[in-house]
């Protein structure tokens, strides 16, 4: 699905990622954990194509294609989905409009015709119920005036409708109360499938109580300093990040 090899990324002259290696197979859930400033967000941004970053070395291959060479919208149409840490408010563009534009772009990209208006509504309304959202949300402007929890739920709604192959969740748990976290997690869990992979970028272990990862990687100072199973997350919760950062510094 995704193969990241020796990836080095800078912002201006400042190196942020210093040789990331990561293999993600279909159906796997990988959690990327790390303290603030470790490069977690940079990793999710670089995978989704945000500008302002320079790749100085290494590669990221998605389904056999050079991911880093594609504009963001092509990545998205190819099935890469970034759930934003801070979803952007787009006043004046309704949720349903954006969903339709997005879905039809994907279909066009794959040589399919535009989605039928009735089928589209049936699809969207089904997903809205799944996420326990009010249908009125569809007709409101994208994220405008939404609470933190509503915004995150909206991200998952988009994900559920666009059916990506690789889902990158950037600090999805931040700003969520426990009820919203449950709903969002259930939404993500319902999307798990053998051909869909997840990368969850998170500071806290909390989210992983609800979405069980297959692998946990710890990012510090731009490198993966430790990888392991779900138990690693619990260890981090207990001991914090400093023991790993120290270990790396002395290594």
């Amino acid at each position: 699905m995704l193969s990241i090899k020796n990836l080095h990324v800078s912002v201006g002259d400042k190196p942020i990622l210093k040789g990331i290696n990561l293999e993600i197979k279909p159906g796997e859930i990988h959690a990327i954990m790390g303290p603030n400033g470790s490069g977690k967000s940079t990793l999710s941004h670089i995978l989704s194509g945000k500008s302002g970053y320079t790749v100085t070395e290494g590669s990221a291959t998605y389904q056999g294609k050079d991911l880093l060479d594609m504009p963001p919208e092509i990545r998205a149409r190819e099935g890469v989905f970034l759930a934003f840490q801070y979803p952007v408010e787009i006043p004046g563009v309704s949720n349903v409009y954006l969903l339709k534009a997005a879905l039809n772009s994907i279909r066009k990209h794959h040589g399919q015709s535009e989605v039928d208006a009735m089928d589209f509504l049936t699809l969207v309304k089904g997903k809205v119920r799944l996420l326990e959202m009010d249908e009125k949300f569809l007709y409101r402007a994208v994220n405008e005036g939404f609470s933190g929890g509503e915004k995150k739920r909206n991200e998952i709604l988009q994900m559920a409708i666009l059916e990506p192959k690789l889902c990158i969740l950037d600090e999805t748990d931040s700003g969520l109360d426990i009820d919203a976290l449950k709903i969002v997690s259930e939404g993500v869990n319902s999307l798990r499938s053998p051909d869909r992979s997840f990368v969850m970028v998170t500071h806290y272990q909390r989210l992983l109580d609800y979405i069980k990862p297959d692998f946990v990687h710890v990012l510090a100072h731009g490198q993966i300093v430790k990888s392991g199973g779900p138990e690693l997350a619990l260890e981090l919760e207990e001991k914090g990040y400093s023991w790993l950062e120290d270990a790396e510094a002395s290594a």
Partner: peptide
């Protein structure tokens, strides 16, 4: 960028935002 990450090309994204 948010719109691009939702499959919308840059020119359309600009037009959508202007229109919005």
């Amino acid at each position: 960028f948010y719109l691009q990450s939702r499959c919308v090309d840059e020119e359309t994204a600009r037009n959508m935002l202007t229109f919005a």
